[in-house]
Simulated scan of single mutants.
Amino acid sequence: MTDTSSFPDDLLQLQERLHRAHVEHRAYLAELPWSVEPIAGWARGERFSHRGDVPDSPGWSDVQKETVDRMRADIRELSIAVAGHPHWASVSREGLVDARMQLKKETRPVVPEDVTEAA
């Protein structure tokens, strides 16, 4: 098992930034209309829908589309930087997957406990 002391600081920071970028991207997408392009919704039974009635979607604005594209590009660049980091050349081929998973585990943000449990 690899510990974080074996990972260079810049690699740890890149992976942390990648985790944050994924979280921010998912949160942003969750706030957008369900369809990129404007489309009429439908009632349950008109089309297959596991969600019941589906409301009209106004589509995404140009700014929203550009923001999603920028976020995806940032994630792609961070992913390339993490995967292509020179540190991986010092890890044995047999230990590469375990080391990569350890890096992800060690840098993943801690999920706060459910707020309702504290109330």
Rank of each mutant, 00 (worst) to 15 (best):
K105D: 12
A89W: 03
V110G: 09
A21Q: 06
Q102I: 04
I39G: 01
M1G: 15
S92L: 13
E106H: 09
E66G: 06
M101Q: 02
M71N: 02
D9V: 06
A73T: 01
G95K: 05
T107Y: 08
L11T: 00
H50F: 13
A40M: 11
S5G: 05
T107N: 04
Q13G: 03
D56K: 09
D53M: 14
R70A: 05
A40W: 09
P8C: 06
H25S: 01
K65M: 14
M71E: 03
D98V: 15
A99C: 06
Y28A: 07
D53F: 13
R26I: 12
P109R: 15
G45L: 14
R72D: 12
S92C: 12
E37V: 14
L29M: 14
L12H: 00
S61C: 02
W42G: 08
G95C: 01
I75E: 02
V82L: 08
K104S: 04
I39P: 00
K65Q: 15
G59R: 07
P55W: 11
R51V: 07
E46G: 07
R44I: 14
G41N: 12
K65P: 06
I80Y: 12
G59Y: 03
E31H: 08
H50P: 11
R20M: 11
S92T: 15
W88N: 02
L32G: 04
F48I: 10
L103F: 14
I39M: 12
V97K: 13
L12A: 00
T107H: 08
W60H: 08
E46T: 15
D56F: 09
T2D: 01
V91E: 03
L11M: 00
V91Q: 04
T4C: 04
L32F: 03
F7C: 00
E113H: 06
P55Q: 07
L78P: 03
H85G: 05
